[in-house]
Simulated scan of single mutants.
Amino acid sequence: MVMEAQDCQLPPEMLDIISKNLDFDDLFQFAGVCKSWREFHKIYCINFLASQAPLIFQTSSYSKDDYSFYSIPNQRAYRLKMGSLWGYSYSGSSSGYLIMAGDNDTLLLINPFRRRKKVINTSVLRGKFSSSSCRALLAFAKGSKEFVVVVSCTSHHSLHVYQSRDSGWVTHSIRGNPWNVVDFVVLHNTIHLITDKADIGILNVNSTNIKFLELNNAPSVTFSRLRLVSCDEQLLVVHFVPEKVLDVYKIDFSTMNYEKLETLGDVAFFYSSWTNFRALRNPSRWGYESNSMYCICLFAECHVYSVDDNKLRKHIVASGSLQTPGRSNFYWLDWCFPHLHDEVDYSLVK
Results as ranks from 00 to 15, higher is better:
residue 276 N to H: 12
residue 224 S to P: 05
residue 238 V to C: 08
residue 282 N to Y: 10
residue 163 Q to D: 00
residue 343 E to S: 04
residue 49 L to F: 07
residue 21 N to W: 11
residue 106 T to I: 09
residue 204 N to M: 05
residue 158 S to Q: 15
residue 106 T to K: 12
residue 223 F to H: 15
residue 188 H to W: 05
residue 341 H to Q: 10
residue 301 E to F: 08
residue 346 Y to H: 11
residue 196 D to L: 01
residue 44 Y to T: 00
residue 36 S to R: 14
residue 175 R to Q: 12
residue 316 I to Y: 03
residue 260 K to G: 02
residue 23 D to G: 02
residue 155 S to E: 14
residue 257 N to Q: 14
residue 199 D to K: 15
residue 324 T to A: 10
residue 112 P to I: 07
residue 44 Y to K: 07
residue 44 Y to V: 01
residue 70 Y to W: 06
residue 95 S to H: 04
residue 340 L to P: 00
residue 67 Y to E: 06
residue 256 M to L: 11
residue 222 T to V: 11
residue 64 K to E: 13
residue 239 H to F: 13
residue 205 V to P: 00
residue 286 W to A: 14
residue 272 S to N: 03
residue 235 L to S: 07
residue 318 A to I: 10
residue 36 S to L: 11
residue 95 S to E: 03
residue 232 D to G: 04
residue 335 W to G: 04
residue 23 D to Q: 07
residue 103 D to H: 13
residue 199 D to T: 13
residue 62 Y to C: 11
residue 206 N to A: 10
residue 104 N to P: 01
residue 312 L to R: 01
residue 49 L to E: 06
residue 123 S to V: 08
residue 280 L to K: 08
residue 291 N to I: 01
residue 74 N to D: 14
residue 18 I to M: 11
residue 260 K to P: 04
residue 181 V to M: 09
residue 236 L to Q: 06
residue 107 L to A: 05
residue 200 I to V: 12
residue 125 L to Q: 04
residue 70 Y to E: 04
residue 82 M to S: 08
residue 123 S to D: 07
residue 323 Q to G: 07
residue 143 G to L: 05
residue 329 N to R: 14
residue 193 L to F: 01
residue 195 T to D: 05
residue 115 R to G: 06
residue 272 S to V: 01
residue 210 I to S: 00
residue 212 F to T: 00
residue 25 D to W: 03
residue 192 H to Y: 15
residue 236 L to C: 07
residue 31 A to S: 15
residue 148 V to F: 13
residue 160 H to M: 14
residue 1 M to V: 09
residue 174 I to R: 12
residue 35 K to S: 09
residue 334 D to T: 02
residue 128 K to A: 10
residue 260 K to N: 01
residue 258 Y to M: 04
residue 330 F to V: 07
residue 308 D to R: 12
residue 155 S to Y: 13
residue 257 N to V: 09
residue 314 K to M: 13
residue 300 A to R: 04
residue 298 L to C: 09
residue 306 S to A: 10
residue 201 G to D: 04
residue 192 H to T: 10
residue 333 L to C: 07
residue 4 E to W: 13
residue 73 P to H: 02
residue 100 M to C: 10
